[in-house]
């Protein structure tokens, strides 16, 4: 597969970012991980990823960060044509009700993980969201069966007429 699907982790606290990236290690073989410590850096990373002909499949984003906050970053991402299909997950302990409503309404937030997370929970959410992404983008599900939700991908293949040649 030439076009790579990236996972983007946006988190300002370096220890937390490291922990997140470490927990996502098993996905890296299929979905390269990029990280950013601020919304501004994240935007640059997004730009670079797309410029290299790749795409962002999932964004895990903290909310409270210096500069632009996570929800506003996600809203901006949603407004961009190329990137609005990326799955968006808030990983935060501090987004209030209003911010969360904003994120759901204007950034089509896909999931909210409250800190502290567990590895199992994180993996489950990432698996589900990336599976959704693959199916929505109509990518060949076979190459992701091993890492993502294979039952759902099989079901997808069953109903989407992948045929023998």
């Amino acid at each position: 597969m030439d076009r790579q699907i990236y996972i983007l982790v946006v988190e300002d606290e370096l220890e937390v970012m490291e922990a997140l990236v470490n927990d996502l290690e098993q996905f890296e073989e299929f979905f390269p991980i990029e990280s950013a410590n601020s919304s501004e850096e994240a935007k640059q990373v997004v730009k670079d990823v797309y410029a290299a002909g790749n795409e962002i499949g999932l964004v895990l984003c903290d909310h409270v960060m210096p500069g632009q906050n996570g929800v506003d970053f996600l809203i901006e991402l949603q407004a961009n044509n190329a990137q609005h299909e990326a799955k968006k997950v808030l990983v935060t302990g501090q987004a209030g009700l209003e911010d969360t409503i904003q994120a759901i309404n204007n950034a089509k937030l896909d999931y909210y993980i409250a800190k502290p997370w567990t590895k199992e929970q994180l993996e489950e959410v990432v698996t589900t969201q990336l599976t959704n992404y693959i199916m929505e983008r109509k990518y060949n599900p076979m190459q992701y069966m091993m890492i993502l939700d294979s039952v759902r991908l099989s079901e997808y293949m069953r109903t989407h007429k992948i045929t023998d040649h």
Binding site: S150, V151, S154, E155, M157, R158, K161, I162, D164
Partner: peptide
């Protein structure tokens, strides 16, 4: 049915 579609369906049976 197509072998592939059958396999995909059976996968949903055997994966669990």
């Amino acid at each position: 049915m197509s072998n592939t579609a059958t396999t995909a369906m059976m996968m949903t049976v055997i994966l669990p």
